[in-house]
Design a protein around this nucleic acid. Sequence first.
DNA 1: CCAAATTATATGAATTTTCATACTTATTGC
DNA 2: GCAATAAGTATGAAAATTCATATAATTTGG
Lengths: 166, 166
Amino acid sequence: MQPPETVPSEDETQGKGFVSDYLLYLLAAASEAASAQFHAHVRTHGLRVPEWRVLAWLHDRDGAMITRLARISLIEQSRLTRIIIQMEERGLVIRKGDTRDRRRVRVHLTDKGRQIAEQLVTDARAHETALLAQLEGGDGARLKPALAALLARLDPDGQTRGEPDA
Amino acid sequence: MQPPETVPSEDETQGKGFVSDYLLYLLAAASEAASAQFHAHVRTHGLRVPEWRVLAWLHDRDGAMITRLARISLIEQSRLTRIIIQMEERGLVIRKGDTRDRRRVRVHLTDKGRQIAEQLVTDARAHETALLAQLEGGDGARLKPALAALLARLDPDGQTRGEPDA
DNA sequence: CCAAATTATATGAATTTTCATACTTATTGC
DNA sequence: GCAATAAGTATGAAAATTCATATAATTTGG
């Protein structure tokens, strides 16, 4: 058995309860908390979070099709269709039918869209650096690999990640 | 300069891009992926995710007020008000005005609500155990502490956590 | 080559969610 | 003790989101 010191003092006030040490909650809460500031910044550019995600992915790889963009951007497909239409109306992206497979619609950044995407990606990089720097000890360094490992395990085909052609 | 082997082979296909290694994305995607299965299970009980979160918190500490429940359950206040009303209509919770501070509304589990909450918490524990077991190496063990550290840093007052009285 | 199944996107309609703000009760500073 | 401010909850109305399904284009199997 392990010595008791490894346990966070079983009743630091009364035992803490289930949720506050529950992995799925920690993930959701950490995601929210970590993103709050930057998402507020995104909104100052007149974008909602899903729109920023779309721009960021297109920045990495332009001309993605709707379904794929939906998967990796964590947005339901019919919602993304409408979001893309709005973004097109605002001149951020354009849609082009895929000539090989005419069911597909490919989404491309406009110059305006690319400009915003590049600015925000730059800002995001800076924000991430600052955030990781705040985590003393190994925690900051360990976090990304641990998350990546979790994702890889849960989504072996990279449906949710940047896989070239999943 | 570092030897190149420490770098993830700069063009494993073309360089991967920004998003797929961006902390805020990894957090959001990992949260989604990790929760997908269990959230589906929650829905089979006729509950939406926010409702499950409310039940889980009340399971830990009954009689929370709306504002606080909203913060820790990651739900916007006016939305939670309506969700609580719906849950009350379905007999999962009851609202009681706080007699000390008559602005406050305290939410309590009904027997029915508590029964569902307990069942789901049990299921959640089992699911979490299974999930962590899948992560070989130290990743599983390191993940929760790293997330907790991130949260603690971003939310020192425990507004988002189970603090007895934040 | 054709019918059946599958994939990609779009859309109607109901429901949810958001945002701003109203209302009520408490707290603070004078 | 009172006016001003803050805190807690609720609510109308606009907007977003979901769900099921339609439509169109491809792929598969025989």
